[in-house]
């Protein structure tokens, strides 16, 4: 991987972020034709509409609006919430930190469980273990997070059990266990789908690798099975897994939004849903751009990681 590749990949990430910002702005502010109607609802009076239009300067040409908005986003001046009249930036950042913790915990759990599971299934191809992982996998990828989350609340957060809270959030200052307790059910709800999905991908990657000519070479060299697995099969199967995990982060972000809503977890997802319900335009835009930036950054990182580990292609 060369510096030129790094620069090139960075350049295209910035291009994509710029396009994303345009897309978000276009959908939320240009597409409705009249953002003021959207914000105030269909039954707003003419005077209030006109007042809002001039406040938002919605009568300017759209590129003026966009440039003004983009400047705001880039300079971290994200405006004021239209509902609570508080600055958007601090609110979003506070919620974002909690969501990131939630997502990171989930991701660590997903990776540590799904990869060994997938490898295990591939090595036992056609036998009971494979069948079990496969069946659980199909069930796992087929249940939406909000259903899993709801069922988890029903099963594990009954007041009479007292094991886990049914929702909410406690800061770390309230004690490490108190803080962690609020994460356990949301993390579980987020991981089941992803574990199922990634384990299946790892399995199929591994099955393909085990069929290649170079694995045949390794076996016919007389290597022991664990040597074939550790030195030849795993490194080649893990490479595409990086991409799969990165793609699933997009799914994870979607999951975070829903799961936070179900558990009343005060993160960015819940903030966004709340803003959507209240048509709080600056809040929606800021939250969307932050989430998209997060996703674009992780796919950039995964590409760089891939290029670093991949020996086959010259990344120029």
């Amino acid at each position: 991987m060369s510096a030129a590749y790094l620069l090139k990949r960075l350049g295209s990430a910035i291009l994509i972020l710029w396009l994303v910002s345009f897309l978000v702005f276009f959908i939320t502010q240009i597409l409705p034709g009249n953002a003021a109607v959207m914000i105030l609802g269909e039954f707003a009076t003419k005077e209030t509409l006109l007042a809002l239009e001039s406040e938002l300067r919605l009568n300017d040409p759209w590129w003026h609006q966009y440039l003004r908005w983009l400047r705001g986003i880039v300079t971290l001046d994200w405006g004021v919430s239209m509902r609570d009249h508080v600055p958007v930036m601090p609110a979003v950042m506070l919620a974002f930190g909690r969501s990131m913790t939630l997502a990171a915990l989930s991701l660590v759990l997903v990776v540590t469980i799904s990869i060994p599971l997938g490898v295990f299934a591939a090595l036992n191809r056609g036998r009971c273990g494979d069948f079990a992982v496969g069946t659980l996998g199909y069930i796992g990828v087929s249940i939406p997070e909000f259903v899993i989350a709801t069922l988890l609340i029903v099963a594990l957060a009954r007041p009479e059990l007292g094991w886990f809270p049914a929702g909410g959030y406690e800061p770390v200052q309230a004690g490490l266990w108190q803080w962690l307790r609020h994460f356990i059910l949301p993390v579980l709800a987020l991981t089941i789908v992803l574990i199922a999905h990634i384990a299946r991908q790892v399995r199929s990657e591994m099955v393909d690798v085990l069929r290649t000519d170079y694995i045949r070479t390794a076996v016919l060299k007389g290597l022991k099975p664990w040597q074939v697995l550790l030195h030849h099969a795993l490194p080649n199967a893990m490479l595409p897994t990086i991409t799969v995990v990165a793609l699933d982060i997009g799914y994870l972000i979607g999951g975070v939004i829903v799961v936070e809503e179900v558990f009343a977890f005060p993160g960015l997802g819940r903030l966004l849903i709340f803003a959507v319900q209240n048509r709080d335009l600056p809040m929606i835009q800021a939250a969307a751009v932050v989430l998209a930036t997060l996703y674009a950054t992780t796919s950039l990182l995964s590409d760089l990681l891939y290029a670093y580990f991949d020996r086959r292609i010259v990344y120029a």
């Binding site: 290649t212 000519d213 170079y214 070479t217 390794a218 016919l220 080649n236 580990f309």
Partner: peptide, 14 residues
């Protein structure tokens, strides 16, 4: 053993 296609018979990441 020596195989037909040396480009697939060698481990690409080693």
């Amino acid at each position: 053993v020596v195989y037909q296609d040396p480009s697939t018979a060698l481990n690409p990441t080693m």
